[in-house]
Computed example of a mutant assay.
Amino acid sequence: MMPWLIGRSRHRPLRPAVELQRATLVNVKLKWTKDRTLDSVVSRERHLRPVLHLIERISADSSGQSPAQELSPRRHHSEVSTFMRRFPSVFYETFSSRTGGPWFALTNAACLLRQRELRLLCQMESDFVDRLRRLLMMSVDRALPLGTIDQLRWDMGLPSCYQRSLVPRYPTFFDLIQPPGDERVWMKLVSWDTRLAVSELQRSRAAQVSEEGEEKCLAFPVRFPRGFGLKKKCMEWLHEWQTLPYTSPYADASGLDPRTDVSEKRNVGVFHELLHLTLGKKTERKNVSNLRKALSLPQKFTKVFERHPGIFYLSQKMGTQTVVLREAYGAGRELLYKHPLIDIRDEYLALMKDSWTTRRSDERADECTCV
């Protein structure tokens, strides 16, 4: 951690170069450095999402079991069966003579964990509703297509059927509309809440002021990985950039010139807040590709991830790019603050990991039988 990057309590007088920064976007490029710790944060969840999708499908069946061919219509049932057999601690396989194919049910451990997850989703409903409201409040028209929200659903912890189960219960917050000439269904914010229109960066600054009794520069926490070399020119630019005015992602930014560093700081603030709305403080880069117009962002807006590697990390794991908020993970791969749903997902991961032990034990037993 480099304390001077976080800003100073008193600003020094602006030099002409700083005034120029306020008018133009400084062309500074910082190198990408591999971060194995944050890469492991991404890769350890490789199979978690499809496993939880299958658990949800099975638990929704009144019989508590489902045929493989109905669990994932987009894939051949043999692929689904092969995948589920990799996790015997999660899925229990049976055979139906009537259908002539494998059926799957949840193990007792998976069943109990699913019940706890469902209870938690009910208990934390107001939290997920607030996250959804804040996402809509960040958009220019206070509305987003359902398809765009769906891309962030998993990361924000929203239930899969939120359009049918969550939205109708809050008519004072949400409305589903279909604009003329648009085939898409949009979710629109019905009422604005000033209490929610405060970014996480502003909340943390307010806490610092309250504890220390003095005003601090509203700068982003920056942490570079070990061995990251920062040239003097880049250090000076980054420090001056941190002292530029901060525009809340919930504020009207139509008056900002997109060709300035001040505007770029607003763009960084938008993604900083967006990642804070996710449970794991990360999301795939492609998930934000449809948010440019909705969040009033410039062309090639995702380049801020490369220009600010001390704030964001771009992981290349699993054949895609995942944006991770560095500050959320501190020096390790564990979140500094874990949402209760993340704790449940970690327990699913542990259960999936147990499957490897179970499979090795079965393989050793088969070898002994053969001998």
Rank of each mutant, 00 (worst) to 15 (best):
residue 73 P to R: 04
residue 114 R to H: 01
residue 290 N to K: 15
residue 366 D to F: 08
residue 29 K to D: 09
residue 138 M to N: 06
residue 117 E to S: 08
residue 222 V to A: 07
residue 5 L to E: 00
residue 237 W to V: 00
residue 215 E to T: 11
residue 84 M to Y: 02
residue 218 L to V: 09
residue 41 V to W: 01
residue 119 R to H: 13
residue 358 T to L: 13
residue 86 R to H: 06
residue 182 D to C: 13
residue 68 A to H: 02
residue 114 R to K: 05
residue 68 A to T: 14
residue 114 R to S: 05
residue 137 M to C: 12
residue 97 S to F: 03
residue 9 S to M: 08
residue 39 D to S: 11
residue 281 K to M: 10
residue 75 R to I: 12
residue 27 N to A: 08
residue 41 V to F: 00
residue 274 L to Q: 09
residue 331 A to K: 11
residue 224 F to G: 03
residue 26 V to I: 04
residue 134 R to L: 06
residue 143 A to T: 04
residue 177 I to C: 02
residue 325 L to P: 00
residue 6 I to Y: 12
residue 65 Q to C: 08
residue 309 P to F: 05
residue 240 E to G: 00
residue 300 K to S: 14
residue 198 V to W: 03
residue 105 A to E: 10
residue 184 R to E: 12
residue 244 L to P: 04
residue 347 E to G: 05
residue 279 L to Q: 15
residue 35 D to T: 08
residue 112 L to D: 13
residue 341 L to V: 05
residue 96 S to H: 07
residue 273 E to C: 06
residue 235 M to N: 00
residue 62 S to V: 11
residue 252 D to G: 05
residue 303 K to M: 11
residue 286 K to S: 13
residue 247 T to M: 11
residue 232 K to A: 01
residue 264 E to P: 11
residue 257 D to I: 10
residue 314 L to I: 10
residue 297 L to Q: 04
residue 93 E to F: 04
residue 312 F to P: 03
residue 358 T to M: 12
residue 203 R to T: 05
residue 33 T to C: 08
residue 294 A to L: 14
residue 187 M to E: 02
residue 273 E to G: 07
residue 297 L to P: 04
residue 132 L to P: 09
residue 317 K to R: 15
residue 279 L to A: 09
residue 333 R to T: 04
residue 345 R to V: 00
residue 175 D to G: 05
residue 79 E to T: 14
residue 304 V to Q: 03
residue 242 Q to F: 00
residue 1 M to K: 11
residue 257 D to R: 09
residue 91 F to V: 09
residue 339 H to I: 10
residue 206 A to T: 02
residue 131 R to Q: 07
residue 278 T to C: 13
residue 115 Q to A: 13
residue 312 F to Q: 07
residue 321 Q to G: 02
residue 56 E to K: 06
residue 203 R to G: 03
residue 356 W to K: 12
residue 246 Y to C: 14
residue 173 F to P: 02
residue 237 W to Y: 08
residue 188 K to T: 12
residue 100 G to A: 12
residue 9 S to C: 06
residue 123 Q to K: 14
residue 181 G to D: 14
residue 135 L to V: 09
residue 21 Q to P: 01
residue 307 R to I: 03
residue 336 L to F: 00
residue 186 W to V: 07
residue 137 M to E: 14
residue 159 P to H: 03
residue 262 V to N: 03
residue 244 L to N: 07
residue 254 S to W: 08
residue 284 E to H: 12
residue 50 P to W: 06
residue 192 W to D: 15
residue 189 L to R: 13
residue 331 A to E: 09
residue 105 A to D: 10
residue 46 R to K: 15
residue 136 L to E: 15
residue 253 A to C: 07
residue 161 C to N: 13
residue 174 F to T: 08
residue 260 T to Q: 02
residue 295 L to R: 09
residue 309 P to W: 06
residue 70 E to C: 11
residue 229 G to H: 11
residue 171 P to K: 07
residue 320 T to M: 10
residue 316 Q to K: 13
residue 261 D to Y: 01
residue 231 K to E: 01
residue 88 P to Q: 10
residue 241 W to C: 03
residue 323 V to G: 02
residue 263 S to L: 07
residue 184 R to P: 00
residue 217 C to Y: 04
residue 287 N to P: 01
residue 262 V to Y: 02
residue 238 L to K: 00
residue 139 S to C: 07
residue 25 L to F: 08
residue 343 D to S: 15
